[in-house]
């Protein structure tokens, strides 16, 4: 029997109103294996993502484990009043936004510069070598990064205090108790660890540029610098805009490891190392102040959500294809 006939028959069956309910059931039954495939993943999302979303109500409760989470007393916005009456709320918001804002600008500029330079290297072996080595810090866990940091910054034995500073005739610095140095240290480490990753993305965009543009420009006598300014950068602009807006959408979330591990949880430098994520963690695990911690977490989730929506709206206006949704 030809395929056409089978299709016609199916169409006939579907067009009969009496059979409609039956066919829907049949469709569901036929899709049963697909539903079974989805089940583990969906259950995981329910536990790992959706239950905690409902758990956000604890920000409005006075948690009492004896009573249980659901039976604890509602206290309205009290937790938020406490949170925003302290200086902490200001400090963690300021730090989070300034650090992430700085990271976005510096990392983007440096990553693009590195990607352009990598693209200029014609020797395949050298190019591969540079790229793999620059990407290497991406593979190293933050715990080990904090070991590396400690080897440089330790007060008595660190490389800076013991070798570099005496060489320059400067006094030793107790790095882990002086807040003013940390914006530079953390920015540097973030670049060190993140540049390789970002530059892979930009390099992929640069490689995708049509070579004919460059050939034409060379014929017109444009030098390398002019080509970079007038061809390379404009061509990868959509990628730059998309990556930047995505990062802005995440500006309320920090790299917890960077801000917790690398400063070794040193209290003396909280003023410049405390961000929303570390604040929430310390509130929960060290101070046992669940209410305040939950309030700060909800503040982060909600503002973060709004920022994602806004940044996506902006991407969408620029180019529909690059928008997340």
């Amino acid at each position: 029997m030809s395929e056409v006939t089978v299709k016609n028959l199916q169409a006939d069956v579907q067009s009969l109103p009496v059979r409609k309910v039956n066919t829907r059931l049949m469709k569901l039954k036929r899709a049963l294996p697909l539903f079974i495939m989805m089940l583990p993943g969906l259950i995981y999302l329910l536990i790992n993502n959706y239950l905690p979303m409902f758990g956000l109500i604890i920000a409005f409760k006075d948690i009492n484990f004896a009573k249980g989470i659901l039976a604890s007393d509602w206290i309205g916005f009290k937790n938020f009043e406490y949170l925003f009456s302290t200086r902490d709320a200001f400090v963690i918001t300021r730090n989070t936004i300034l650090y992430n804002g700085g990271f976005i600008i510096l990392n983007t500029v440096l990553a693009i510069a590195v990607a352009i330079m990598l693209n200029e290297i014609k020797n395949k072996l050298a190019k591969g070598f540079y790229q793999s080595v620059i990407l290497m810090p991406f593979l190293i866990s933050m715990v080990i990064v904090s070991y590396l940091g400690y080897a440089f910054l330790s007060e008595d034995t660190g490389y800076l205090n013991h070798t570099i500073l005496p060489l320059l005739g400067l006094d030793e610095v107790s790095w882990y108790s002086e807040a003013k140095y940390w914006p530079y240290i953390l920015t540097f480490i973030n670049m060190w660890k993140g540049i390789g990753f970002l530059c892979v993305i930009y390099l992929a965009a640069i490689i995708g540029i049509d070579q004919e543009f460059y050939e034409a420009a060379t014929l017109d006598g444009a030098n390398k610098w002019k080509q970079i300014i007038h061809i390379t950068i404009p061509s990868i602009m959509p990628v730059i805009i998309m990556m930047t807006l995505l990062a802005i959408g995440r500006i309320f979330y920090s790299d917890f490891g960077l801000f917790y591990q690398v400063p070794m949880n040193s209290g003396a430098i909280y003023d410049t190392t405390n961000v929303i994520d570390t604040y929430v963690y310390r509130g929960l695990m060290q101070l046992g102040d669940i209410g305040m911690s939950a309030a700060a977490g909800l503040y982060q989730s909600v503002v973060g959500f709004i920022l994602v929506l806004v940044s996506n709206y902006l991407v969408r206006r620029k180019s529909k294809d690059n928008a997340l949704f």
């Binding site: 999302l45 790992n48 979303m53 929960l284 939950a294 909800l298 989730s301 994602v308």
Partner: peptide, 22 residues
């Protein structure tokens, strides 16, 4: 359902309570 988890999440405190209390 999958996509929404990229936009919004409960954060550390509720997650911790789900995995320790529930």
């Amino acid at each position: 359902i999958v996509f929404f988890t990229l936009l919004f999440n409960g954060g550390l405190v509720p997650t911790y309570l789900v995995f320790t209390q529930v």
